[in-house]
Nucleic acid binder design. Structure first.
Lengths: 244, 244
DNA sequence: GAGCTTTCGATACGAGTCGTAGCGTAATGG
DNA sequence: CCATTACGCTACGACTCGTATCGAAAGCTC
């Protein structure tokens, strides 16, 4: 899962086994370097020095910066969980907040996005990202969806192909929105934003300011009756279309 | 708008004016190099050679690779338009398809994402991206929203602060979803996907399989098989995560 | 323990890029 | 004509890359 999973079993190869401590030290050093230097100024020689290993050791396990950073960042997203919070809206809000918290960390920001950028020209890298980061997240979407259907919050899906497409769509919408909010808009995906996002996701824009209707029983938002929304401070809304 | 907007007026500075042709040649060469080499292997010396200018000329106008690529990519997104297609859904589908078409181009993919990744550690770069790429797109959201409210498709917004938040939210959802679909999932944001996305955006997940009004579900599962994959019944979900 | 296999640390190396400096020339304005 | 600025070209030190090489260490098999 980390660098190579081919060894580990003692009865596999005769020689000296690879140091597992070196793996964790290298990955931790990579995250540390990402925080301090960012992607572009991160050098493998520096990571090796931080980890206390030789540069050659690093190159024996990872073929380059891309793969190393992906593995280092993937460990961050392994923390994601989806506890049952009682309603679909609460489940979404919970996992989105977790995702946003991870994405707010500097090592995740620069590392993940740069790796994705590189993956547009490197199929093997894209596959590695998908297997170690994306697919586990998609599993959470499946889990939450199944729970919601069991609760009756979502209509059960009859066509399996349609269901697969829907899951992919939801995943792109959720992950994409949080990533865009955090990295491009560079504003925090805090509780208030997550509440608004969840409302749009579940009920759509058409009923944006209309109180919840068909499916939203008490699930509007787990912790609050947000109906009042604290907006005041009227700066300008639709003033100049072309900003700047 | 391109490299530097401080000159241009003949009565401003005495000496030889900068060649406007060089600007366009450099930006075009940058996009060409992005297509052939991608972000990581793109070198400023190579761009200068392609553009037929000296490397020093390039450094006089742009401080580095980041700024150059942002300007080169920004010209791509300048093509975005929002013609009135008669309904909010049609407007959304149209502009999203345009956005997806631009994002499908290799120079946009690797260039934009790498620049965004770098912008997490460079405030000036983030501001440049915002001013030249993000804000114009947000203007389209404002325009479409105003049209929809004029048509009565969306409730008119009373609180300006709330409206501004909603616009930001919509923008993050739309742009983020398309970017994630194109770059992370690495699948095309084609018409079928855009239809499904628009439906979720307007009506939410709760009414996912309820046939909406204007757009018939006839096209919902038309072309492209992709059948099988990802068991539906998966109540346990966690097991067969790796779909596709 | 002897012998084999593999990993590890350290160093050195050619290749490539970076960003800048220097110089002479070209183009514009006073 | 002269001042000023942009341009093309060359060259340079500094840095990183990825690899090769070497001796030493750590584990397995016998």
């Amino acid at each position: 899962m980390v660098g190579g999973m081919q060894i580990r079993t003692p009865a596999c190869r005769p020689g000296r086994p690879r140091s597992a401590a070196a793996d964790t030290a290298i990955l931790a050093a990579t995250r540390e370097a990402l925080v301090e230097l960012g992607w572009s100024k991160l050098t493998l020689g520096d990571v090796a020095t931080r980890a206390g290993v030789a540069k050659t050791t690093l190159y024996r396990r990872w073929s380059g910066k891309n793969e190393l950073v992906v593995d280092a960042v993937a460990e961050l997203f392994g923390e994601l969980e989806l506890p049952d919070r009682g309603s679909l809206a609460a489940d979404i809000e919970g996992v989105v907040l977790q995702f946003a918290a991870i994405l707010a960390r500097p090592e995740a920001k620069s590392g993940l996005m740069a790796a994705i950028a590189e993956s547009t020209r490197d199929d093997a890298l894209r596959e590695r990202i998908r297997a170690s980061i994306v697919d586990p997240q998609k599993g959470l979407v499946l889990e939450g969806r199944a729970r919601a259907q069991a609760r009756g919050e979502l209509p059960p899906e009859t066509d399996p192909a349609e269901a697969a497409r829907t899951v992919d769509l939801i995943f792109d919408v959720v992950a994409g929105a949080v990533v865009h909010r955090t990295l491009v808009s560079a504003e925090p995906a805090d509780e208030e934003w997550v509440r608004g996002f969840t409302r749009v996701l579940l009920q759509g824009l058409s009923s944006a300011s209309v109180p919840p209707g068909p499916y939203g029983p008490a699930a509007a938002s787990g912790t609050s009756g947000t109906s009042g929304t604290s907006g005041t401070s009227g700066t300008s809304a639709a003033s100049g279309t072309s900003g700047d």
